[in-house]
Each structure stands twice: as structure tokens, then as C-alpha cells.
């Protein structure tokens, strides 16, 4: 059993004061301001917005909620605390070719000028590569989440599904 659940989904509601049972799971400390994020698929995450990074993550989550766009979050299943927030982007898929190291794949997204990499070591490498190739062949867009600094692809979802799937790693 891993210690982080990753989730890509749209936000159903943001509760500015987290319910008591969620506060108890987090073991709320003095000064913390806990906000509950309820996702369309039924999952819940808790964010402490009294300090960074939670305050900054909350502003990004509110923005993506207003736009009805999915978000990528990592949640500690023991406490329901959100431990990472990333922003999926809707991308048409361009060229998919071996990276310079020959082990990984370099993926071109048509609404991006950055270089993106699909690492062979990712546990869902084969499934994500297949999704990318299908999207490329059918001229479809996919929701893509990549890492903040190295632009390694962490998650790929078809654009017509609303997410809600989670995994534990």
C-alpha cells in the first residue's frame, strides 16, 4: 500500500470550512484554516489555506473550479490532506518519438512549445503511450498532467471523460 493517492477530476464544491470529521482526520492544529475540496467522482481532499503552499494551491483550485477544468491532486489517504496540486492541460497530440536517451519517449503537444517526456519507468507507461497514440491517430485532444519542472508526463486522460479515477502508489 502506498502513501499517496493521485486523482484527476473536476471539483464539485469547495467548502470554506471543512466538516468536523475531516478536521479530526487531519488532526487540525491551532492556526490552521482547513478547506474541503469535494471532487465530482466523490473523493474529498483537505487543504490548509493558512499558509503556503495550501493558500496558493487553493487559489489555483478555485480558478480551475470556476472554469470547470479538471485538477490533478495527490492526497494522503490516512489524513485526506492534499499534498500536491498540478494543472492538467487539454492538448492535441503531435509527434511521439524516442527521446535522446532512447529509453523514454518525447511527446509534442500542439498547444505547447515545451518538450515533454514520457518516462519508461512510469508504472502506466504503456497505457499512457497507447492513449497518446490513439489521440494522435484520431486527431483528439487529451488531458495531460506533467511534472512542474522537468515536464515528465504523470497522467493522460481522454478529453471526453470526466476523470474520477484514482490510484495509489
Amino acid at each position: 500500500m502506498g502513501d499517496v493517492t493521485s486523482l484527476v477530476d473536476t471539483i464539485a464544491t469547495i467548502e470554506e470550512a471543512a466538516p468536523e470529521q475531516l478536521k479530526a482526520r487531519v488532526r487540525q492544529e491551532a492556526g490552521q484554516q482547513l478547506v474541503a475540496i469535494r471532487f465530482a467522482g466523490g473523493s474529498v481532499g483537505v487543504l490548509d489555506v493558512s499558509a503556503s503552499p495550501g493558500s496558493v494551491w487553493a487559489s489555483v483550485l478555485r480558478n480551475l473550479h470556476e472554469l470547470a477544468q479538471p485538477v490533478y491532486v495527490e492526497i494522503n489517504p490516512a489524513t485526506d490532506l492534499i499534498t500536491q496540486v498540478l494543472q492538467p492541460k487539454l492538448q492535441p497530440v503531435g509527434a511521439i518519438e524516442p527521446a535522446e536517451n532512447r529509453a523514454d519517449m518525447r511527446v509534442e503537444f500542439l498547444r505547447s512549445h515545451s518538450r515533454h517526456f514520457l518516462r519508461r519507468t512510469h508504472p502506466r507507461y504503456a497505457a499512457m503511450l497507447q492513449l497518446l497514440r490513439e489521440a494522435q491517430a484520431k486527431n483528439l485532444s487529451v488531458w495531460v498532467t506533467d511534472s512542474l519542472n522537468t515536464h515528465e508526463i504523470l497522467d493522460v486522460r481522454p478529453s471526453q471523460t470526466s476523470g474520477g479515477k484514482s490510484e495509489t502508489r
Binding site: 503556503s52 503552499p53 496558493v56 494551491w57 487559489s59 489555483v60 480558478n63 480551475l64 472554469l67 496540486v85 498540478l86 494543472q87 492541460k89 512542474l148 519542472n149
Partner: peptide
Amino acid sequence: LNTYRNELKLRAASGD
């Protein structure tokens, strides 16, 4: 611009 303002915020909030 909204998308990459969000990316800038997320990076600024990270450990870096």
C-alpha cells in the same frame, strides 16, 4: 495566460 499564471503560482509554492 491564465494557464501559465497558474503554472507560475504552483512552481512558486513548491519547494523550489
